[in-house]
Write a protein that binds this DNA or RNA. Structure first.
Lengths: 339, 339
DNA sequence: GCTAGCACTCCAGACTTGTGAGTGCTAACA
DNA sequence: TGTTAGCACTCACAAGTCTGGAGTGCTAGC
């Protein structure tokens, strides 16, 4: 009972603080939420909450502000998800439905997510490790340059230009192309390295150089992780906080320019479908100690393939953002499924 | 002579203001630049310059600040380019030399430019209108979906997925593929629409639907302007200005999220190789009245194909930025030439 | 266990004041 | 005619002071 009210107080503090960005005091609390007790009582609860580290005072005689720990408790036990309205859901559906290819889906998703949440949005490209080769093409651009185009069963196209020291004969190239096609077509990416091991053996010594370089390029293409690409959008929302944003937004903007950082932010979400929230210093990235990250895995079929999420100040609307991230993750999975 | 000194005063004001971001007064001016006259004289010149609209006072008893018009005059007649140091040049060369494909060149360029100038950098993809078709491939992904891959002589790969209402027969597809290859291979993009006009006539009626959709997709691919893509980087530099940046950086960040806006910013630079500077309200984009844009065309061979540039506050280091943009444009052209 | 009351703290905003940078003007000078 | 020195004037800015009010913790009583 007592315990219950204390949590209610914490919830109220978080909600008010998120709404106003100003320290919230005991009196304002009883006025805005019908807690059924007097400010004095709330003060006792607040003292206890502060003792336990969930809230803090910027200075004496100021209201309380949730700590990272407080947000954590709020998210874990108190927030609940705020379901999207059905017009919102419909908007998502329609918006994503009209995308034409993978790049387009990614760009649209990031825009959508940024727009709904009014935060910075991140979307990671789906991993290709389970892809298999649909087609491979080798085309000469000049006597010493050629291009390799790799098409996967999911319709993804990868390209590589290859520079060769000595001139390439059309015949040799055709030969390699044909054999390569036979060898790898239909094979999964993960099987390719194995296959390539013995591939060059079937060619005469004078072609070895060319074969080797083509082989290396293909190997590079199938082992390169496209899922290390992250699309970013909505950075303008950062500026909206003005002074309310702790310190400057510069370190945050800087961090967000690094692909590596974006990947770390999206991180390894634990569960498969659940939404992960990293609050403040729980975040592994330097310079982003005052931001929170809400991420979810999205999947094609029922295997999860990559993450997406939003980044914002710790005093964000967790319930809303969690709902949005979850919903978008679901829809993206569905869209990719269809394609 | 008098005229000369007045311009020297303007130059000094711009330089000091750019360095300090604070209104500059007559006394400070004679101290920092050896103008050989007294503050009182400078004041007269300043009054004249203000009269003519080149400088302004934020308020009485404050120093002077250059107006957009003042910057304009400075850029046109006073600044001169500040050549890059040779280590800088070497760094550019090395940095760009190690790029592997077009996307990579674009990304590296934008990073480089942002880093050198400490501003937001923009790089437009080179136009393809003079490209020609090297190879075209049609590959079935499922019974109703196929992918078209178009490879240009410059090594650029364009892809499109095609959805078909009725199942596609392998034989029909092979047929179309072969004829399409004959029809368009080696042809320039600009010639393709003409060629396609009569293309579908050679197929029997039951294949018309498929042929039509493939045709439409190809047409779309060759007429789509890849040069409408712009890469952006260095947005974190915007935040560096803090309060020094007039108003908020939010509208600027918002504007920069729109591809269309980026294109307008890069705009049609007049001359071929010269650097174009748009100052403050000269800028065609709403919300960016207090930013300046320095752009240059870059070219493959000696035809100019696209633009790159930087965006920053009007009180930027024009001499430095102009030099950097020019140099990078040159190197990028050279790199693309080699490829 | 809750509440009312009270003394205490201390920020935020309003107001005041002094300082100094900067100006424009005028009169003298070269 | 252009330059300079001097002077009175303006006005933002910083520092200092004051005050109201929001918020707290504590204690005694219900």
């Amino acid at each position: 009972m007592l315990e219950d009210r204390r949590l209610a107080v914490l919830r109220a503090i978080v909600q008010d603080y998120v709404a106003t960005h100003e320290p919230v005091g005991s009196k304002a609390l009883v006025e805005r939420h019908h807690l059924g007790v007097s400010p004095a009582t709330i003060r006792n609860d607040m003292a206890a909450l502060e003792e336990e580290g969930y809230i803090a005072q910027p200075h004496t005689s100021a209201g309380r502000v949730p700590t990272d720990l407080g947000y954590r408790l709020f998210v874990d036990r108190l927030s609940g998800v705020k379901p999207l309205s059905s017009p919102e859901r419909r908007a998502i559906q329609e918006f994503l439905d009209s995308s034409v290819d993978l790049d387009d889906v990614m760009v649209r998703t990031v825009r959508l997510l940024a727009q709904i949440t009014k935060q910075v949005a991140l979307v990671q490209y789906p991993t290709l490790s389970r892809s298999s080769v649909r087609h491979i093409e080798l085309i000469a651009l000049s006597t010493t340059r050629l291009i390799m185009v790799l098409i996967t069963d999911s319709g993804r196209v990868e390209q590589r230009t290859i520079e060769c020291a000595s001139p390439i004969s059309e015949i040799a190239l055709g030969d390699i192309r044909a054999r390569l096609l036979v060898a790898v077509s239909g094979q999964s990416f993960s099987a390719i390295p194995e296959i390539l091991l013995s591939f060059s053996a079937q060619f005469p010594v004078e072609m070895q150089q060319l074969v080797t370089i083509i082989q290396a390029t293909l190997l590079d293409a199938v082992t390169e992780r496209i899922d290390e690409r992250v699309v970013l959008g909505g950075t303008a929302h950062l500026a909206r906080y003005g002074d309310a944003f702790p310190l400057s937004i510069q370190p945050v903007l800087e961090a967000l320019e690094e692909q590596v950082v974006l990947l770390r932010l999206l991180g390894e979400s634990s569960a498969n479908t659940a939404v992960t929230v990293r609050i403040g210093h729980e975040n592994p990235v330097e310079g982003m100690e005052s931001t929170s990250v809400v991420t979810a895995r999205y999947g094609i079929g029922d295997s999860s393939v990559a993450s997406l999420g939003v980044v914002g100040p710790t005093h964000m609307d967790y319930a809303g953002n969690i709902a949005a991230v979850q919903a978008v993750a679901q829809y993206v999975g569905r869209i990719l499924d269809e394609q």
